[in-house]
Design a protein around this nucleic acid. Structure first.
Lengths: 186, 186
DNA sequence: TTCGACATACCAACCGGTCTGTATTACTAT
DNA sequence: ATAGTAATACAGACCGGTTGGTATGTCGAA
């Protein structure tokens, strides 16, 4: 794997786990096994440009991962619960959340960097659109599909925050169990 | 108002808006209109001790504010929507979210400081317990009440993240509209 | 005259970022 | 085919500014 890709992948995980400011440049470089020369060669604008690159990369990774799960499941409900299930087992195994969230980046950077905020917005939009497409397949109306998609995205991201605060995967488990109720047409 | 209280109130808002690391000590002192002497006089352990104090203070403020709304409304559904309504008008007025959330602190500090994580956990627990009590009043079973309370907390906090990313209050509006569905007994 | 409540000067460590040096690869002119 | 050159891909020393934190000084009230 080339240096640039390795940098992005390593940095993405660090940023997801601990946010932007908390991850120092030197620590980042050490984790990637590179030097400042390499960083500023590939990302002339420095740390923030790397962050944006990480968010774009995350967009593709996340899209691929989620769509993979979605194509293998029947309903949106089952798909959502499968996604949450993966998050739970990741969390129980590693003790930390990285793969599916970027809440730390959103909350920290939305007021600080407009490009970063925009990249986060696009990421959420992408996730919502995948949920939304599946909901339409399930026969939901366009309006309700987009509402429920947003609600799913929000509750999963919020659930992750609760997991972080409790240092446990139970909140996500509860979220997963309540989701069916949300899916009922009426 | 005495110095210590003023410090806590000012710092709380800053931490809520931008997280912990992003708020520099000097900036904090300037915003509070004090000097380092005062800070380290009242909080010998420094910045982190101040953060913990902010979280404890936030716990009381939030409890009071939410309970006030809850006592004035009939159902949990109406109460939750009223709380969200306040968040929306705050957001539309100030352009920034502070009063009801601490997601930036959770995601940034949960791995970094155990006391901070614990304080955040207690905060969420407190919020959930208020929702839960009202749900029990509404006749929900104990199990369902705590599940729904957690779900409400998560989706509101997640909705705030979406608002931050979109720089708009629309996500919370949608959340508010979908909540009734969640409340239906079945 | 002691003690709480600060103010202020100062500090080492660290921050993100720049600069210059160098090895390797790619291209090109003869 | 080969010598010359330019561009790429780093490495690592260095920089000014900022960080959180400390030590000492001041001053009014008890």
């Amino acid at each position: 794997m080339d240096t640039k890709t390795r940098m992005i992948e390593t940095a993405t995980t660090l940023f997801q786990q601990r946010g932007y400011k908390s991850v120092g440049l030197n620590e980042l470089l050490q984790a990637c096994g590179i030097t400042k020369g390499a960083l500023y060669h590939h990302f002339p604008a420095g740390k923030e440009e790397l962050l944006i690159a990480c968010l774009h990369s995350l967009n593709q990774t996340l899209t691929r991962d989620i769509e993979l799960v979605f194509h293998g499941t029947a309903s949106t409900e089952a798909a959502a619960r499968a996604v949450i299930g993966e998050m739970i087992s990741d969390l129980d195994r590693d003790g930390t959340i990285a793969g599916y969230t970027f809440s730390s980046i959103v909350s920290e950077m939305s007021l600080l960097s407009e490009p970063a905020r925009e990249a986060c917005r696009a990421l959420y939009e992408q996730i919502e659109s995948i949920f939304c497409a599946k909901l339409l397949e399930d026969g939901f109306s366009s309006d309700r599909a987009s509402s429920v998609a947003l609600f799913l995205t929000a509750s999963i991201e919020g659930g992750l925050l609760l997991c972080r605060a409790q240092n446990s995967s139970l909140p996500l488990q509860t979220i997963s169990n309540v989701i069916p109720q949300l899916m009922k047409e009426f």
